[in-house]
Design a protein around this nucleic acid. Structure first.
Lengths: 338, 338
DNA sequence: GTTAGCACTCACTAGAATAGAGTGCTATAA
DNA sequence: TTATAGCACTCTATTCTAGTGAGTGCTAAC
């Protein structure tokens, strides 16, 4: 029981994680000793496991059971053994590339299809977040009449995402005037970052002041609304856990899209690609891990994709999948055949 | 054991359903006999239950257990006792009305908020389908430049829903030309039903033929895409069943939005508001019932709302909730303060 | 037609015995 | 000093056996 983590201890920890992920049962010392690559007796492994348990990397469900990894154990495993994603862990690499060469359609479909791709690859719930409003610029503003005093405000941004909001005005406004205001707003706001609209540009026609101002204040609201999320494969959490109670908690959490977005941002903000169990700071997700990766379009980070599964997941494979899909999506959107 | 369904048998069937819905356990003859309203001995009830079982309205999980309703039993119950929804079954009626007076925002939000309202009222999964493309008319068509050869096609329909699709063209087209085509298409197609676009209107400028034709064919595709679905509260099916396997099947089905829309349409097409278990014709939903109601805007049916829960649900309450929410939504959209 | 009485069925529960996996410790071997 | 074989010990999971009780169907009496 030497006093620090050495290569052999790490190898044993790694083996425990690998076996537990595969078998879903506590793994014992004899099981490990029979694996190729580790050539010491089960007794020796027991000693090392004892250390690993004392240090909090492993835990025993009960006295006479094998060990399972703790969150700390998974963390060590991920940091040490899957630091750089390896595409050989993802045999479906061709089908991923094929997906992105064939993909077409509007951006929203693109995102939800990507989310579906990821959930199919991994069998866990997948998340794709749309463009972050902080990085998005206005491309066009349109006002469309919906009725006598109702107007629909449309904004198309630099990523091709359309935001809309309908609004009501005091007095009737004819199509021609709407067109004028549309053109005016488009001309003046084109290129502005949605997230940081502050000063109203000069108005040319005082008669349309009100409408212009109204539309402008509405545009500012898009800032907060704009973070779209595409979650697919939520049903798969029912496969990942056998406690129906856990399933319920996780599903309920996934339905709170805002929470999920925040979660993903937090993981990335900590400079990580993986968040494990209690690290996430969300009690209902204590048994879940999250794997995330931003995707980059034309050099700038636009959004991110993520995956939510049980802590007991195949990290090498999932990390490879998430990385492949995020770079695929980034490239695809950069080409922009959309 | 008289040979046909009489009032007493029906009353017993009703009691069995009511009690089973509440207790989630097979109900026995003694239990029923102790209920107020039925003043016969348990032996008599046993005789009647025997008949009800022979006729397929009830079933015994095993020999020495009470009875639970079959799908046929629920069907009789619904047709006979909850034919007309009664608002007294839905005490939250005020909060529903309040919701619709306060509701605001874009149509998409309106639908998803409505879906969330319904799921909160009933604790089951709620579905709201957007306007049916068959009844929707074009209000405006816009082409917006997204890049040198990429164009975004926007269509606003009579319900204020925006459909979009990006497309690629052979040669660069400047903003002025786009505006021309936009105006041309809007002028000529305004009022057309999206679901039945067939003949391309006359083109004024042969130079823009291609773009016009392309845009027109894209518009036709909106027909099939256009049925938006808003499903909320899917996580609640994890509460409704305790077999994790059932949860999995139901969730996976709910994720196939197309299937859900078809399901709702089918129930309505049969002239019903309720579809029960195997009636639905979808094996994974064999233990589910669906309660639906169309909502009507300015006199015409626009879409429908629905609810998916276990066959063992409180039909009076759920029917009341669905009806209240659908009329509320219809009224709200008719006022159209959107 | 209704009901009391009764024998019967069968899921569910508790308790006891058993088997087996896995551990920690100790003494020995390298 | 380090690794290993051996062994006693612990504790879950399984299997078995009653035993309990809810609920039924049937029959005979009202």
């Amino acid at each position: 029981m030497s006093g620090s983590m050495d290569d052999r201890k790490a190898a044993i920890l790694r083996a425990v994680v690998d076996e537990y992920v595969q078998l879903a049962e506590p793994v014992g010392s004899t099981h490990i000793s029979r694996l190729s690559g580790i050539n010491v007796s089960s007794a020796t492994i027991r000693n090392e496991m004892n250390y690993l348990e004392q240090e909090g990397y492993l835990i025993q469900p009960h006295t006479s059971a094998g060990r399972i990894p703790t969150d700390k154990g998974y963390r060590y495993y991920v940091d040490t053994f899957v630091k750089d994603a390896n595409n050989s862990d993802m045999p479906e690499i061709q089908s991923i590339e094929e997906f992105f060469t064939k993909a077409h359609g509007a951006l929203a479909e693109m995102f939800s299809d990507t989310s579906r791709l990821l959930t199919n690859l991994t069998n866990y719930a997948a998340v794709v977040t749309g463009p972050d409003p902080e990085t998005v610029r206005i491309r066009s503003v349109q006002l469309v009449s919906l009725g006598p005093k109702r107007i629909l405000l449309l904004m198309v941004d630099s990523k091709g995402v359309v935001s809309k909001k309908s609004l009501e005005v005091q007095q009737e406004i004819d199509e021609l005037e709407l067109e004028k205001v549309s053109n005016f707003l488009t001309r003046n706001l084109r290129g502005s970052v949605v997230g940081s609209l502050s000063d109203l540009p000069l108005v040319e026609n005082p008669q349309l002041d009100n409408l212009c101002e109204l539309a402008f204040s509405m545009l500012k609201e898009f800032k907060s609304e704009n973070s779209e999320v595409y979650i697919e494969g939520a049903s798969k959490v029912a496969n990942a856990f056998d406690a129906v109670d856990t399933v319920r908690k996780v599903l309920a959490t996934l339905e709170q899209h805002f929470l999920v977005v925040t979660l993903i941002r937090d993981v990335l903000a900590r400079g990580r690609n993986v968040g494990i169990g209690t690290e996430l700071g969300i009690p209902p997700l204590a048994e879940c891990s999250v794997v995330v990766s931003p995707y980059i379009v034309e050099g700038e980070q636009v959004g991110s994709i993520g995956l939510v599964g049980p802590t007991r997941m195949n990290y090498p494979k999932v990390l490879a999948a998430v990385n492949l899909v995020s770079t695929g999506l980034g490239k695809r959107l950069s080409e922009g055949r959309g």
